[in-house]
Structure formats: C-alpha cells, structure tokens
Simulated scan of single mutants.
Amino acid sequence: MSFPNIPNITPTISVTTAQTIPLLLSSIALEELALAHIMNAEAEKLQFVLGTLPTGTALSPAVVSLAELFAVDSSVQRTLRDVIKKEMLLEFKFENVLDLIGTLPPVISTFLFVSNREDNTIAIFDISTPTSPVLVREFGAVDFPGVFDGPTGLAITGTMLYVANQFDNSLVIFDISVPPSPVFVSKLSAVDLPGVFNNPTGLAIASSTLYVSNPPNDEVAVFDISSPSVPSFVEQANEGNLSLPTGLTTTGTTLYATNFGNSTIEIYDIFQPSDPIHVDRFGAGEVSGPSGLAITGNALFVSNFSNNTIERYNIFQPTDPVHVDEFGTGEVSGPTGLATTGTTLYVANQSAGTVSIYSFPSDPVFPPAPVRIRDFGAGTLHAPTGLAVFIPPNPV
C-alpha cells in the first residue's frame, strides 16, 4: 500500500511578516471570545438548574435531585477542562507571535514639521505612512513665549531644527532628539547680529553650513554650524544676482536660490560651503513668483506662488537644469515650502491653510509626473510656509 499523495499546491503568498502578525493576533482574540461564550453558557447551565437564572421556564422535573446536580456539575467540569486545554494552546500561539514580533526591524517613525506663519506655531505630523499624516502636536507661544514671530523657513541637521522668524528678524534653534517634545536651545536676533537678518524666509543646509535668505537685502547669510547649537556668522553672499531671494536648497556642491522678485532661480557653487560662487541663472519665462525648492534624486521641484503651480527640472547636471514639466494647476493654492521623502512630495499651501501630498513612482533616472493624493491640515494649519522632514537617528 502506497502513501497518500499530497497535491502540488503552490499558491502565491503576498502577505508580509508584518501583515501576518495582526492577523494572528486577531485570530487569537476571536478564539478567546468564542471560549468566553462557552464559559458563559456553562455558568448559565448551573444557574438554570439551581433556579437562579430568570428565564420564565419551569424546571422539569420541578425538583432537581442531588445526583442530577452532580451530573450537571460533572458536565460543566468536563467542558471547562477542554476550555483550559484550548487556553494553553492559545498561550503557546501567543508566545510564538511575540517571538515573530521580535524578528521585525525596529519601527522608525518619520516626522514632518510645518511652520504656521499666521499663528506662530509649528505643527508636527507623523508621516511613517507618507500619504496618511497624523498630527502629533503643535508647539508655539504657549509652550515657548516670545520665541516665534512669523516662522517661515525650516531646516534640520542631526537632531537640530532651525526656524527662520520673518517678522522679528531672528533664527531659532530647537533640539528635536525626541520629536514630540522639542527643547528650546537658543535664539539669534538683530540684537546679537545687527544687520544679518532682514525678513529671513528660506533655510538650507550643506555639510556644516547654514544658508539663510534675506529677501529685502537681496542677500543670503552664511553660518558655520560645526557646533549646531551655536551658529557662527560667516558672511552675506551677494554678487548682485539675487532679487528677493526666498527659497533655498542644496545638492552636492550646488546651492539653488529662488528670486521672487524677477521670477528666476540662481545657481551657486558651494564647493567651499562658506563661500558661494555664482554660476548661472535659469527659469526665466518658466517660473512665476518662485517661493520654495525641494530635490529628490535628479528632480528639482519649484513652487510658483504667483500662478499656483509646481515646476520640475532635471538636474542630472546640477549647473545645467533642464525644464521637464509643470503640474498642480487647480490643486495647490499659494504654494510655498516643499519637502520630499522617498516617493512623496509635500507642498505647503499658504493661502489654503493645507499641505498637499503628491506621489510619484521611484525611477533611477527621473521619476514620472507626480499625482496628487490628498490635502491635509485644514483647520490645524494657518498660513503654512516652511516644511522639513525628520527621520530620527534612533527608533521612536
């Protein structure tokens, strides 16, 4: 007699380990619920024969003998013994699930910081699921009196958050080692550095250098942040090329600065980070009131505040950007700050009080056109201006 044959079944399993765990926990919970119903039924069985269960049904026979009570009790014991056996199996199953959880990599949350220029606050969102931001908290005047006055540009290096205050001409520094609980570090203002800040709006960081745009002065202030909590002013970069500079961003040894005044974008060589050298200008006739900048891979995004659109450039050659396309018409409103993480682009809609989420497929050369997913922050955000993404060095 031969052994039975098992059919060749090769289903495609598309459930990850992380997705399996909640399914297993749900199955344990459902089995526990079933056992609870069984235990309740056995308890009601005893109540019934003892006459303490209000059912309106008369016992037959009317008088229950001691032997009959012992028989019912024995039946309940046998049932509960089986329940206990099942509970032991469920305990083993639960322990196996705990072991499975231990094999997963630690969960590292990602956070999006949003500056609210209108109400002097900064909102923190958990964007571990990039298209489903969850508000963590807002902090501002209530938590730190006198610290914020028109917060605009944001930049992060290590665990330090820099905030440009447009209205009181200052730079604020926070330690965000624990993102939901920012710790105030210091504030640099006109009192400390006369003439350095003038309506600062954009911030960008390259290596240990911080750049701050000052639109009315047509200048970009350069700071050495080798000691992140103690910025040291280096110089004002201005070769006569800037016109109301607002947004800043860097890639490699290149710094880009938007000219809100003449709707162009300047390119600077920052091989020596503390000494930007003007290279070229681009965007004339393509951008309109450029305000924010963001880079992912070879794609440079530019927010057009004046015509409510976003431009894309291919910066495979950083000093020779090639215009690719424009998107966002009818979807963004007064776009200012931009930020990217993975295959997601965030756009601060200053006029609408929201942030738009765009997604684009990953591509090693140049990503396809972004697709709008949704807006978020309505009712929470007030003139959102600056955006910055933070991935803590340690799991949160």
Rank of each mutant, 00 (worst) to 15 (best):
D149I: 06
A164Q: 03
K93A: 15
S186A: 13
S356W: 08
P61V: 05
V230S: 14
D375A: 11
I13N: 14
T264C: 04
E42P: 07
V324G: 09
I9S: 01
A348I: 10
N40V: 00
S208R: 04
V371K: 11
L345I: 10
Y346T: 06
S14K: 12
L188N: 06
E331M: 11
F92M: 14
P335F: 13
F174G: 06
T79Q: 10
G292A: 06
A284F: 05
G328K: 08
F366Y: 15
L46E: 02
P393F: 14
L53N: 09
F305Y: 14
G353D: 06
G202C: 09
V107T: 13
P61M: 03
D218C: 07
A62H: 08
I315K: 09
Q317R: 01
A164R: 08
F92L: 15
I315V: 12
A339Y: 11
T201A: 11
I13T: 11
I373Q: 14
S170Y: 00
M88K: 14
I265C: 01
F70Y: 15
V134C: 01
G337R: 01
L104N: 09
L193Q: 04
T17W: 08
T385R: 06
M160L: 13
D325V: 11
N217R: 02
I6P: 09
T251N: 09
F184D: 01
L188D: 00
L89S: 13
Q47A: 13
G334M: 00
T254A: 08
N262M: 09
V178K: 03
Y313M: 00
E87A: 08
R81Y: 09
I270E: 10
F111D: 09
S207Y: 12
V15E: 14
A204G: 04
A190S: 15
V183Q: 03
L53V: 11
G330L: 08
A294R: 06
E266Y: 04
L244M: 11
A141T: 13
K187N: 12
F139Y: 11
P54A: 04
S232H: 10
A18M: 02
T344A: 12
L210M: 05
P215E: 02
F48V: 05
F139Q: 02
I277P: 10
D192Q: 13
G240N: 06
F327D: 03
F148N: 01
V185Y: 07
Q77I: 14
T249D: 02
L50M: 12
S359D: 13
A41D: 08
I357W: 04
S109C: 00
N169A: 13
G140D: 01
G195M: 00
L203R: 10
M88Q: 15
F366E: 12
Y358E: 01
T17L: 15
T52S: 15
N217W: 06
L24R: 03
R81H: 10
F174V: 02
V15T: 15
A58M: 02
V172Q: 03
F197P: 06
V72F: 08
P370F: 07
L154M: 00
F197T: 08
G379M: 09
L154I: 05
N165T: 02
G140M: 05
F301W: 05
E311G: 03
P216M: 09
L98D: 12
A378K: 13
V230M: 12
